[in-house]
Design a protein around this nucleic acid. Sequence first.
DNA 1: GCTTGATTACTCGGATAAGCTTTGTCCGAGTTGAAACGG
DNA 2: CCGTTTCAACTCGGACAAAGCTTATCCGAGTAATCAAGC
Lengths: 161, 161
Amino acid sequence: MRMSEGVEWALHTCANLAWVEPGDAVPAARLAAVFGLPAAYLNKQLQALARAGILTSTSGPRGGFRLARAPEAISALDVVVAIEGAEDAFRCARILADSPWGDPAVDYRATCAISQTMRRAELAWRRELAGQSIADIVGAVERRNPGTGERLRRWLTAARA
Amino acid sequence: MRMSEGVEWALHTCANLAWVEPGDAVPAARLAAVFGLPAAYLNKQLQALARAGILTSTSGPRGGFRLARAPEAISALDVVVAIEGAEDAFRCARILADSPWGDPAVDYRATCAISQTMRRAELAWRRELAGQSIADIVGAVERRNPGTGERLRRWLTAARA
DNA sequence: GCTTGATTACTCGGATAAGCTTTGTCCGAGTTGAAACGG
DNA sequence: CCGTTTCAACTCGGACAAAGCTTATCCGAGTAATCAAGC
């Protein structure tokens, strides 16, 4: 079980965008340059975030991406779901239905004890992620390393008018 | 992010083995027949469980797999780790180190706020799974469907001497 | 100087390949039980 | 009838292929700022 690397990029990029002025859009290429990431591929991930309503995108000169809403209103879970999809990692294939005494009419996703156990664990995971917002993350970083936001904002908007 | 289907097979199979007499070994082919699974592939998964010390394997006639210890002492997490590996789903690639002001000497897996957030969520997931044993699962099934164990035990040992 | 129009550079967006993990299959090594044989 | 030897079937175990998903790249459509020309 391996989470897409795009999740890490997306979370870091959302945090970066939380630092720039709300009105300013930053191109994917510049956001990628922060970490030396392949620009086109990061762009693809940001597209997913835009489709999920986390970012808004603008084409043309002075275009780019910006947060669609306040950092307080974007949870880590929102970002993970946008990249990885909403489906659970564990997918009950209802193999109980294939056993000699299995009933094809029963929805084993709801009754199978194993499925329930796995689901409970995933819910705990989701709850934890839902409780952390981009604002929380940004705040923690600023508290540990004061000045990070200011430095990043300047770097991201350096070559701008 | 998708969990291997082998996890589901392994959990169900461990539950099934918990129902047979502790001394009896059941071949992979028979365990696979319960759910109509590809025998050779299930065998592969059970090998992983054996390497992890969850099952013991015996070759030759009347051989097969059996639980290496009491169902109470096998957690769902043990099984998941045996199949999926011990690594976290989210792997911090320390991309912060590649930023213009990143320090290659810093271990960003420990300090990065995003990495910590993801890690907390995974710990919650693991805690939940560690709290559920095979015995718990088997008990829940027997409580909901009394007689399941007896029926399965007979089916698994049907063609035996 | 101001308005208007064409132009140009810039940005996202989706379509298109390469790499890697997961899934699935196969045959060989080892072991056990049983059968055959001899005493 | 009992012990010994041979044999044959059975089972795991790891090596070998196919499929699907993740990662990566490219070029086209659209857009907004810019520049030039005309008023």
